[in-house]
């Protein structure tokens, strides 16, 4: 859980050995959310109270699967992100880039029977932070997913292809297996692009199977 490159980990990771939790009833089950948790326009982040959000309109879509390829239907996905200028609508974010009155940066949806999801949003900007001198986060969208079971709960970040900021980003590089890190990067999807409307990025999310052994990756 510790990663020297990401400074805030220092006081926020357990130092004792994690204890193996066999997957019993509580771990192989999980909450089920109905459509009542989702508003009709919750997967469209571009509509603000007084008009459209500013920035490059993009479609972000893909499938949620288990590691055996089975789709994960009816699972809640929640996302949050910075606006086109890289600014979050949050009291802690005070860097000099303007807020957009028409962009809150939060969205949610539920996957369909094939595990498919789709958001319409604005391409987020990169933003600076104080982790190291001249530190910038590559553009990303935060994703939260439930899956079918407590063991499948995942919070992660989706990146954009060939971002020039990856090399200095400790979050991206905390995933030391390069192939695994690349699974956080979406693909430009020209076929899904809508003419005179929006560019598109595809991102498939793979949740570990219910019986999979615990992943060691981020503990490395």
């Amino acid at each position: 859980m510790d990663y020297a490159g990401y400074k805030s980990t220092a006081l926020r990771h357990p130092k004792q050995q994690l204890i193996a939790l066999p997957h019993r009833l509580t771990e192989v089950s999980g909450p089920v959310f109905g459509d009542d948790r989702i508003g009709e326009f919750d997967n469209d982040l571009t509509q603000g109270p007084s008009g459209e959000a500013i920035g490059q309109r993009i479609i972000v879509h893909g499938h949620v699967k288990e590691d055996d390829g089975r789709p994960v239907p009816d699972t809640l996905i929640e996302i949050w992100q910075a606006n086109a200028g890289g600014r979050y609508r949050h009291a802690v974010d005070q860097w000099p880039s303007p807020l957009d009155p028409n962009f809150t940066g939060a969205g949610r949806t539920i996957t369909d029977k094939d595990g498919y999801f789709r958001f319409l949003t604005i391409k987020p900007g990169a933003y600076p932070w104080r982790n190291h001198p001249n530190a910038w986060r590559p553009a990303h969208i935060h994703f939260s997913l439930f899956g079918r079971a407590f063991t499948q709960r995942l919070v992660t970040q989706m990146y954009f292809p060939e971002d020039p900021l990856f090399f200095q980003d400790p979050m991206y590089n905390a995933i030391r297996d390069e192939r695994a890190a690349k699974r956080m990067v979406s693909a430009f999807d020209y076929d899904a692009t809508e003419d005179h409307w929006a560019l598109a990025f595809r991102w498939d999310i793979v949740l570990r199977g219910e019986e999979a052994t615990p992943t060691e990756e981020p503990h490395a």
């Binding site: 949050w80 949050h90 940066g105 979050m171 981020p218």
Partner: peptide
């Protein structure tokens, strides 16, 4: 066939925008 799983990342400082 087993697909590689999507790695976890931190929720970061702005989770209050999307999760509560």
């Amino acid at each position: 066939m087993t697909l590689g799983t999507t790695p976890s990342q931190t929720v970061g400082p702005y989770l209050a925008i999307g999760l509560p």
